[in-house]
Amino acid sequence: MSAPVVGTRPVLLVALAAGLTACSGNPNALDPRGEGAARIAGLWWLMFWLGTAVFVLVLVVLAVAVVGSRRRRRGRAEPDDPTLAPPPEGERSAHRLVVGLGIVMPLVILLPVMVHTFRVGADLSPVHEGGTDLTIEVIGHQFWWEIRYPDHGVVTANEVHIPVGQPVELQMTSRDVIHSFWVPNLHGKIDLIPGEDTHLHLHAHEPGEYWGICAEFCGVQHALMRILVVAHEPGDFEDWMAARAQAPPTPADPAAREGAELFLELGCAACHRVAGTPAEGTRGPDLSDLAVRRTLGAGAIENNRANLGGWVADPQALKPGNLMPPTPMSGEQLQALLAYLETLE
């Protein structure tokens, strides 16, 4: 029975090894672009090759056992006597096989895995605080991420901007249920737990946009709770931070000015904050830089005028179960509101 297995498995495994390192741009834990992911990928490849060796060994032993058993069976011409025990054959060498491959071999294999686990774990341990120049607070909500830069007074949502080439501390908690922050190209995940603080050090090696998704089941829209980490060159990061530290400009366009008033009148401000305005809501994402964010609804859809209009008109159609209620408004009101929202940067 083992013949097809022996034949196909190594092929699949080689395909695995090849397929996982090739593509880029998409989330991929084995295409590391940060310190954590790189160290973990190293650990994985060690375990992968050791594991493959063990698996192949088992298949070989199984194949040999099957063949040996078949030969022994054929060697006995007489029909099996159902009442008498067959004499135990090769008892001592069989015993040696169990001890050698069942006990000694796993110990030998596990030792380097354990040592490597300790080293990578100690280096990446997420619980030691401090030691970084930048601390970012990440607060989980159903179903979006609140991102705060306490040293700069900047608040945003669903996008974490970091400088490359240095570790950045993410300090995490949750306002409601347990979430988990996972951006595979940069690092493993850490949970966001209500009433607790957890920590993760992100250390991106190269600039880029890295996607992740909430990895702890958090309710109806767990699937559309995405997170984007944007890693900048340090100078670009300074520019980004400087831009974010200023409140969005007061809109000049009359339609946008009307939209700004509607934002307060229609109740948007009850949940959303816009820096420099009376809108101070905290239930929903801070919208001060909405116009320059890449997506709406924590990665649910691309951020453009059409989608934004659709989102404001009926958030439940695009991301059913999210906590934003639909707001009844006329077509003109919607256009004015969109004009205003597009100035928020």
Binding site: V61, A65, G90, A94
Partner: peptide
């Protein structure tokens, strides 16, 4: 992995030395 290995290789050794 060690007690699991003992079991796996016990089955394999039984097959090897048996008449399956």
């Amino acid at each position: 992995a060690i007690p699991s290995g003992v079991q796996v290789f016990s089955w394999l050794a039984t097959i090897w030395t048996g008449r399956v």
